[in-house]
Amino acid sequence: MDIATFVQVLDSTLRLATPLLFACLAGLISERAGVFDIGLEGKMLVAAFMAAAIAFVSGNVWIGVAAAVGVSVLMSLVHGVAAITFRGNQLISGVAINFLAAGITVVIAQNWFRQGGRTPSLSGEARMAPIDLPFAAALRDVPVIGPVYHGILSGHAPLVYVAFLCVPATWYLLFRTRFGLRLRAVGENPAAVDTAGVSVIGLRFAAVALCGVLCGLAGAYLSTGLSAGFVKDMTAGRGFIALAAMIFAKWRPWQAMGAVLLFGLLEAVANRFQNIDIFGVAVPVQAMQALPYILTVVILAGFVGKAIPPRAGGAAYVKEH
């Protein structure tokens, strides 16, 4: 592999890791508050559709992003009402949201644009333009720094940088603020939070709404940054890879970044090469695609450091009377 290919693969790793990172942090915040969310995929999908549709109609990608966040938050509130208010099964609610998204995006897209369940291709202002980091052009020919700074780090859509800034932000929110302490407490021992006079329901809804915002950004980047328009089922399991990354990172933000970069790299390599030779053994492309899932099962099985979810995760809180 020559340097140029290497730089290209790492460059596309960052792009592919971005939706995963948003969705992974979204799931992390929700599950830290004790609300399981396997509906990340569905929220990303409706957001991707909404972003592309509204960006196309309005001609402004940022209006599309705002609409994507809005519809994604709406979907999380449905999950919240089912899981928190009516104390329904959180996993089943997540499954329902995934199907709802898979169906309704195509029904509406077909009715709206009549292109077989896709939106028209986005161009110009309706697409998220890449931005150059300062001095990227000037540093271009400097050895080592040039390829890394100009080739890999610079020239991505703004949401890519937002995603990576969300990592320290999430860490700070969860581990350095009062809100974060309470949010984590509500995922471990909601009764204690309730006894302290803080609303369990309120905290959980806040976490679910934050999760919706991040899923909205993930979907918006997918359809306006990574590709130029929405196509049916375009999330293609990314919500579940994000879920896998969250478990892989054991519900911690910095490790989540590491996990999505690893999974993004796997996807970039699988996209670029069909079969890879490692020490003379041909690794089929399907093995690369399955690797994130296999790694997650291995981590869950506890063969390499056990992943233990927040203790009150998945259970609705019933107040004592």
């Binding site: 449905v78 009402v81 089912a82 899981a83 009516f86 329904g88 099964n89 959180q90 089943i92 609610s93 499954v95 329902a96 949201i97 995934n98 199907f99 709802l100 898979a102 169906g103 309704i104 195509v106 029904v107 077909q110 369940g117 049916k232």
Partner: peptide
């Protein structure tokens, strides 16, 4: 895909809500 929507709503109402 309308059927997928109906399926989702059935899951939502009978399972989660």
């Amino acid at each position: 895909e309308l059927i997928v929507v109906i399926q989702a709503l059935v899951i939502l109402f009978t399972g989660a809500l």
